[in-house]
Computed example of a mutant assay.
Amino acid sequence: MSVIWFECKVKYRKTQDTGEKKISTDTYLLDAVSFTEAEARINEEMKTLTEEEFRIMNIKVANFSEVHPFENSDRWFKSKVSLIALDEESGKERKTNIYLLVQANDVKEAFENTNQALEGTTGDYSIPSITESPILDVFPYFTGEEEQLEKFNVIASAETEKQES
Rank of each mutant, 00 (worst) to 15 (best):
A104N: 09
L136N: 14
F111P: 01
E44C: 09
K9E: 09
F152P: 10
L136E: 04
E93S: 14
E132P: 10
R13N: 13
T36V: 10
N113H: 08
M1E: 11
T96M: 15
K80A: 10
I98W: 01
V154M: 07
E53A: 11
C8Y: 01
E146H: 13
F77A: 10
E146C: 12
E146S: 10
K21W: 07
Q163Y: 01
F111M: 11
F70R: 04
L118A: 01
A158P: 09
E93F: 12
S90K: 05
F77L: 08
F54S: 01
P134Q: 11
N63D: 07
D26M: 07
S65A: 12
E93A: 08
I42R: 00
N105T: 05
N72I: 12
V3D: 15
L118W: 06
A110C: 03
E44H: 10
A158L: 13
K60W: 10
L136R: 14
S165D: 15
T160N: 12
E52L: 07
N105F: 06
Q103G: 00
A85I: 08
V3H: 09
R55P: 01
E146R: 15
M57G: 12
N113R: 00
V33H: 08
T50D: 00
E51T: 15
E147R: 04
K108C: 14
T160G: 13
A117E: 05
A104F: 02
L101N: 03
Y28L: 04
E132D: 05
E119L: 13
Q148K: 07
D17Q: 15
L29W: 00
G91R: 08
N115S: 12
S157V: 03
Y125I: 13
T15L: 14
L100R: 00
N113S: 01
M46G: 00
K92L: 07
E52M: 06
L100Q: 01
C8W: 01
G144Q: 11
Y99I: 07
S129F: 02
V102R: 00
L83T: 02
Y12V: 00
E132V: 07
G123C: 15
E37C: 12
V102E: 00
E147Q: 08
I135T: 02
L49D: 04
Q148H: 09
D87I: 06
T18P: 09
M46C: 07
E112T: 06
N97L: 11
H68N: 13
E89P: 00
S90F: 04
G144P: 01
Q103L: 02
Y99G: 13
K78R: 06
D74M: 12
K92Q: 03
W5S: 03
E159R: 14
S90Y: 11
V10D: 00
T160R: 07
A158M: 04
S82P: 13
E53R: 04
S65L: 02
E161C: 11
S129M: 15
A38R: 03
